[in-house]
């Protein structure tokens, strides 16, 4: 009995370490669009260097990106984004830590498109807020693509939009996520 229990514990421990299937990217794409409908000025940017790590066993999914990594079409917009809104020198990073809540219904080892529900905490501009969204997880030949869209309310993160630019800059931003993850070998 003693031996069996010990073996069982050992197996559980070993499998816990080695059966974890982690996938990652350092070149995830995060899109940002805060254009006011009908406004001639497009306020959108893309960050092509977001980090994303997914643990397929537990469903843990985490993202992080540097605010200065958002590229705008206009240099001045990028400057204002960093200096006046995101305050990138003070808060350089945005981090999301969450879980795929329906992780058990996704078969990562089988190619296919699965809908995924993700819930977690996002920390941006020094504020942490709950974020919940639905996205897609596409498993294809050993790689996993994560796709999602959600809205972000600037006021939730204490980012103030002055009245002066209210007709150009929306109060909510559309965020799009597109990350192609590869197996993490450790």
């Amino acid at each position: 009995m003693k031996k069996t229990l010990f073996l069982f514990a050992l197996i559980a421990f070993v499998s816990n370490v080695h059966s974890q299937e982690k996938y990652f990217t350092k070149a995830g794409k995060l899109g940002f669009d805060a254009t006011v409908p009908k406004s001639p000025e497009n306020i959108d940017a893309i960050n092509k260097a977001a980090l994303c790590v997914l643990d397929t066993k537990t469903g843990d999914i985490q993202f992080s990106c540097l605010m200065k990594g958002f590229e705008f079409e206009r240099a001045l917009m990028m400057e204002h984004f960093n200096e006046n809104y995101a305050e990138s020198d003070k808060y350089p990073k945005t981090v999301f830590k969450g879980v795929v809540t329906n992780n058990t219904s996704i078969n990562y080892s089988k190619d296919g498109t699965y809908s995924a529900k993700v819930k977690g905490q996002m920390t941006m501009h020094g504020e942490t807020k709950e974020v919940e969204t639905e996205g897609k997880i596409i498993s294809k030949s050993g790689k996993i693509q994560v796709l999602a869209n959600f809205n972000l309310v600037f006021a939730d993160y204490k980012i103030v939009i002055p009245q002066l630019v209210a007709d150009k800059l929306a109060k909510t931003a559309k965020i799009s996520v597109d990350c192609l993850l590869e197996p993490l070998k450790k």
Binding site: A9, A12, N16, D55, D60, Q62, K186
Partner: peptide, 26 residues
């Protein structure tokens, strides 16, 4: 004792504050 060890291990693998980003961050 064995059950205790097991539960610690399983708790560890489901812990919320795992920092996955730490594994890949430059």
């Amino acid at each position: 004792f064995a059950i205790l060890i097991l539960s610690i291990i399983s708790l560890n693998s489901f812990a919320q504050d795992v920092d996955l980003l730490d594994l890949v961050e430059d």
